[in-house]
Computed example of a mutant assay.
Amino acid sequence: MKYSVVIVEDHILLSQALAGLVADFDKFKTLYVCKNGKELLTRFKDPKNIPDIVLMDINMPIMNGIETTAIIREEYPQVNVLALSVEEDEKTILKMLRAGAKGYLLKDTEKSILEHALEEVIETGYYHTKDVTNLLINSLNPKKEASVILKDREIEFIKHACTERTYKEIANMMCLSPKTIEGYRDAIFEKLHLKNRTGLVIYAIKNKIFTP
């Protein structure tokens, strides 16, 4: 018995090449190929067309791989989706995995790795390369930014800066010279990695220093 594989790829020559490649694997057979997600889901209406694995491209017309994978996860949970794409962008990879893909491979993957990935998906339910595994770990445990400690006078300045007062007016309210206030501003911008007053207001609201 061979496991069935469907290839969803909008480039005809590539889809045919993949179909031939999969057909050469001992444990797998190519059931059919589709040009996009909509065509695949239409074929799925016939139970005979539902495969064990879908090799899914991402960038396709009409319905892309991420949309299609999310629908498969909800309506056909027994089908394993293995992404096969040229996209190396981390955000795209994470979107595809979160949509329900059981693995992610690049199209320049070697034949032996593709075969191994298909086998792993059947046996364990997923296949992740080392890079994808690290990406998933980092997405679950994002690096925390170093906490910034603001002095009381800096916080007071920030609160004033969130109003329509000019720096000269802020200097008068804080009983400081305009030059000193400019020093506060520059030091805070550098400490918080900000470029302008607008960014400071957004930071203050986000960190509950100022309530509009």
Results as ranks from 00 to 15, higher is better:
Leu97Arg: 02
Glu156Met: 09
Thr109Leu: 10
Pro178Val: 03
Arg185Val: 00
Ser177Asp: 11
Leu194Trp: 04
Asp10Asn: 14
Leu176Thr: 10
Val132Leu: 05
Val201His: 13
Leu40Arg: 06
Thr68Leu: 06
Leu118Gln: 02
Met96Leu: 09
Asp52Trp: 12
Lys107Cys: 04
Ile188Asp: 05
Lys2Tyr: 04
Thr180Lys: 08
Ile7Glu: 03
Thr180Ala: 15
Lys38Ser: 13
Glu90Ser: 08
Ile72Asn: 00
Asp186Gln: 14
Lys2Ser: 11
Ile202Trp: 13
Val33Ile: 13
Ile62Cys: 05
Cys34Gly: 10
Val79His: 01
Pro77Asp: 08
Met1Phe: 09
Ala101Cys: 10
Lys102Tyr: 01
Asp24Glu: 14
Ser15His: 03
Lys2His: 12
Ile7His: 00
His128Trp: 09
Phe25Thr: 03
Met1Leu: 09
Asn49Asp: 15
Leu140Cys: 12
Asn207Phe: 02
Ser4Pro: 11
Asp26Cys: 07
Leu55Lys: 01
Leu192Thr: 01
Leu114Ile: 13
Leu150His: 13
Glu182Ser: 15
Thr42Trp: 02
Val6Gln: 00
Asp24Ile: 03
His128Thr: 02
Phe28Val: 07
Val201Ser: 11
Asp89Cys: 03
Ala83Gln: 01
Asp108Ala: 05
Ala204Glu: 05
Ile209Gln: 06
Ser15Ile: 07
Leu82Pro: 04
Glu123Thr: 11
Ile149Phe: 06
Glu154Ile: 08
Ile53Tyr: 01
Asp152Ala: 14
Pro178Lys: 01
Asp26Ser: 10
Gly20Thr: 05
Thr69Gln: 07
Lys35Glu: 01
Glu145Met: 07
Met1Trp: 07
Tyr203Trp: 13
Cys162Tyr: 09
Ile93Arg: 03
Phe25Asn: 05
Ser147Gly: 08
Leu194Asp: 03
Glu75Gln: 10
Arg98Tyr: 15
Pro51Phe: 00
Lys191Arg: 05
Ile122Pro: 01
Phe189Gln: 05
Ala101Leu: 09
Glu119Leu: 10
Leu18Tyr: 06
Asp24Thr: 14
Asp10Gln: 06
Leu176Pro: 12
Leu31Lys: 05
Thr180Phe: 10
Ser4Glu: 14
Ser4Leu: 01
Arg153Gly: 00
Ile209Cys: 08
Met173Trp: 00
Cys162Val: 12
Lys151Thr: 11
Glu182Pro: 09
Gln78Asn: 12
Asn172Glu: 15
Ser112Ala: 14
Glu156Asn: 07
Gly37Glu: 00
Leu105Ala: 03
Val81Thr: 02
Thr124Pro: 10
Ile205Pro: 00
